[in-house]
Design a binder for these strands. Structure first.
Lengths: 155, 155
DNA sequence: ATGCCTGCAAACATTTTGCATAGCG
DNA sequence: CGCTATGCAAAATGTTTGCAGGCAT
């Protein structure tokens, strides 16, 4: 099992190899993310958390860091529904999981598995589109909301 | 093959059965969408097009109509990258296609096929999450951008 | 000394809301 | 008549940008 420290080290490596300097501010942002993988932070949340350790930090810096990290493949961005973007630490490429977005309470659950490699290969072969990454999310109702009767009857 | 008229009829039916009134404004928005399935309109684009037929139409009305249509399953919303939301007519439920978003030029290509039914079934069985719909998009580089050398070398 | 990085504030784009009016059932 | 839908303008939201000052190389 990978520890937080190992993940961080891997991320640092990747950033360095791409010539992205890990400034104090960026490091704090990265560490907050790496401390809790499997969590989906909004830029705002991240900002607040990071500010506990770097009170002078600016929100714009957080956005800039996230963009950088995203491009480096160290962080991935989640666009779901009407909400703000969420960010999460990306352990390693090709090791995806899917997101289950609850229409009742907005929670994001995860499902660890990625069965899209075959499909990716087919798409590349058939269309010539060179795939870099993919995003999948399922919308629906989580067990909790179903239990509370929030979910509509299945059609 | 389904015609635009048939699609519209199906949509009208669905809206009616859900008690959503098809006012003149909504009808125009729906018709613009139905006239070109396989296209991904921003609210703004839609607004401009619809206004040719209903010059007094307000942008807010377009947004309100889209929300309604989305909830009724007649239109689906696409969240991709940093861009505004895009909307497209949804032919019929369970008849999905995937989106290929080009990082080079921003174009959205489509890939007609949906292999996620099995996965959906498994997720529902294993997690108790009741899936209503899913969104998949692949990011990468389209053939045109690859030809122009915009795509980075594969890693 | 140069150039990237930062914080702040202002700008921006998209989407939502409040409200008075108009139209339908 | 009451209720919903509409247009307009203003507000809210999330994100990006410009710029002056700092820090590191």
């Amino acid at each position: 099992m990978t520890t937080g420290a190992q993940r961080l080290e891997a991320a640092r490596h990747r950033l360095e190899s791409l010539g992205v300097r890990l400034t104090p501010q960026r490091r704090v942002v990265l560490e907050v993310l790496a401390a809790q993988p499997e969590r989906h932070f909004s830029a705002q949340e991240l900002y607040e958390r990071a500010r506990r350790r770097a009170p002078a930090l600016g929100l714009a810096t957080v956005y800039r860091a996230l963009l950088l990290f995203e491009r480096a493949g160290v962080v991935s961005r989640l666009n779901v529904g009407q909400e703000e973007d969420r960010f999460e630490f990306e352990l390693e490429r090709g090791h995806h999981h899917h997101h289950l977005v609850c229409l009742g309470c907005g929670r994001i659950l995860e499902f660890k598995e990625d069965l899209l490699e075959d499909l990716e290969a087919r798409i590349q072969a058939e269309t010539g589109f060179q795939i870099v990454d993919h995003r999948v999310h399922f919308t629906g109702y989580c067990p909790r909301c179903r239990a509370r009767g929030v979910a509509p009857p299945s059609p």
